[in-house]
Amino acid sequence: MSGKAYLVGAGPGRADLITVRGLNVLRQADVVLYDRLIAASLLDEAPAHAERIFVGKRPGHHAWRQDGINETLVRLVRNGLQVVRLKGGDPGVFAHVAEEAAALAAAGLPFEIVPGVSSALAVPLCAGIPLTWRGIASAFTVVSGHEVTDHGCSGISWSLLAATPTLVVLMALGRIEQVCAALIAAGRNPDTPAALISRGASHQQRTLRATLGTMAEHQRLAQLPPPAVLVVGDVALLADTLAWYDPAQYPAEPMLWEEI
Rank of each mutant, 00 (worst) to 15 (best):
V123E: 11
F111I: 02
L125V: 15
P47Y: 10
V114A: 04
L86H: 05
R65L: 14
S118Y: 04
V114L: 07
A107H: 09
R58S: 12
G116S: 13
A122F: 10
E99G: 10
L109W: 01
G108F: 11
E112Y: 09
C126Y: 15
S118I: 01
L104M: 05
A46M: 00
R65I: 02
Q66L: 00
G116M: 12
A105T: 14
V97A: 12
P124Y: 13
A122L: 05
L121G: 05
V74Y: 05
T72Y: 01
G89K: 04
L121V: 15
P110L: 08
E100M: 02
L104Y: 02
S118L: 03
F54Y: 15
G108W: 06
A105I: 07
G68T: 07
C126A: 12
G89Y: 04
N79Q: 15
V117W: 06
V77D: 05
Q82K: 11
A122T: 06
G60D: 11
P91F: 13
G92P: 08
V97G: 00
D67Y: 08
A63D: 05
A98P: 04
G88F: 05
L81G: 03
F94K: 04
I53L: 01
L76H: 06
A120S: 14
K87H: 10
A105S: 15
A122Y: 05
A101Q: 00
D67V: 14
V123M: 10
I69D: 06
K57A: 04
G92F: 10
R85W: 10
I53W: 01
E112V: 13
L104F: 04
A102H: 12
A95R: 03
K87T: 04
A101E: 01
V97K: 00
R75E: 15
A102C: 06
E99S: 07
V93R: 07
V55H: 04
D67I: 10
E99P: 11
V83L: 11
V123Q: 12
A107C: 05
P59I: 06
V74M: 04
P47T: 01
L104W: 06
P115S: 11
G80Y: 01
A63L: 02
E71T: 09
A122V: 09
P110H: 13
E112Q: 14
F94H: 07
S119K: 10
R78I: 00
I69A: 04
G68D: 15
